[in-house]
């Protein structure tokens, strides 16, 4: 077992909307990432994946608010830090974060090298610009990006190149953890492949020690990360290795997700897809008991009344369901 880089315990955060309503977007999330490992987070749109990413960094600003829980990065608890302190000492150095659609948010009037200068100067205000350039050139070469990119404006780069540049900028200070939120969803398959290769390269070279990868594309997660967590309505409903989660899902929701995988492989064409009826609960008024109860095929009365917590299963995994793993497997086999 490697050293634990990131440990999150019972993290709970909420949005407070304009109309003063609470939206519990991250509800009782615990996770652990070890050195050299990558963790994938899957879940449908609006389940709180991006919010979890923000919350993990301890970087809270309105309308997102911290409620309770601990975040420990490499032995240091950051959950009680002020946003300014987080920006100073956590972002970029401890955790790098690539937001959803970051590549379209680059200021179009500035060159790539300017963004790198910003990143470095924010943490070491006395650095020399020539030195930064030198560093940037070596780093870009290492990551297979042409040096000339540094003098381009964001609009002059293709989608894939832009996203890879964004990644290179984010990890410039060699953070311990990289959080990538849907880094390849807007790209063609070929550019997607390049982006993924680059992320895996970063891990191999030790430029980042651990990675959290967020996407709703399960086949992609399966190929990229060691572990997969499935998120539903602000909660983790299942965690395990990629293989376990994809080929032997325990939670009925994960089962449904895995049944909707579509890949260009023989066999897929004739298999019946499983789709989950209904819609996720409104996070403003989360239901009592199991969040998934409303849409679950196997629901029983207790599901709707009992608070259900994560339970361990064989093979160092866990899931959030009232039924034991044998019961579930049997039910799945019977269709």
């Amino acid at each position: 077992m490697g050293k634990t880089i990131l440990k999150v315990d019972n993290l709970k955060t909420k949005y407070i909307t304009r109309y003063n309503e609470d939206v519990y977007a991250v509800n009782d999330v615990s996770l652990e990432v070890e050195e050299g490992k990558s963790l994938g987070i899957a879940g449908e749109s609006g389940c709180g994946k991006s919010t979890l990413a923000l919350s993990l960094m301890g970087y809270y600003f309105a309308p997102l608010h911290y409620v309770s829980g601990d975040i420990v990065i490499d032995g240091k608890n950051i959950s009680s830090l002020e946003p300014d302190a987080v920006r100073q000492s956590v972002l970029g150095q401890e955790i790098a974060y690539i937001p959803q659609s970051a590549m379209n948010a680059l200021n179009p009037t500035r060159k790539i090298i300017n963004f790198i200068e910003d990143v470095v100067l924010a943490h070491e205000p006395n650095s020399d610009k020539k030195e930064i350039r030198q560093l940037a050139e070596t780093r870009f070469e290492l990551l297979g990006l042409p040096k000339s990119v540094l003098d381009h404006y964001p609009v002059e780069l293709s989608g894939g190149m832009k996203q890879r540049t964004v990644i290179a900028i984010s990890v410039f200070l060699s953070p311990k953890i990289l959080i990538a939120d849907e880094p390849s969803s807007a790209l063609d398959v070929s550019s997607q492949k390049m982006v993924i290769k680059m992320l895996l390269d970063l891990m191999d070279r030790g430029l980042v020690k651990a990675m959290i990868f967020i996407t709703h594309e399960l086949p992609l997660l399966y190929n990229v990360t060691d572990d997969i967590m499935v998120m539903y309505a602000g909660q983790i409903v299942e965690k395990g290795t990629a293989r376990q989660t994809v080929f032997d899902p325990l939670h009925p929701y994960s089962k449904g997700l895995m049944g909707s995988i579509i890949v260009p492989e023989a066999g897929v064409r004739n298999s019946k897809l499983s789709s989950i009826p209904g819609v996720p609960p409104n996070l403003k008024h989360p239901p009592q008991g199991c969040q998934f109860a409303e849409r679950c095929k196997y629901v029983v009365e207790e599901c709707k009344t009992h608070e259900i917590s994560m339970r361990p299963a064989e093979g160092d995994r866990a899931y959030r369901c009232i039924f034991g793993e044998d019961v579930l497997r049997k039910a799945y086999n019977n269709g």
Partner: peptide, 10 residues
Amino acid sequence: DACSRASILE
């Protein structure tokens, strides 16, 4: 998202 995709195809 990939989760709702299957139902639309069907």
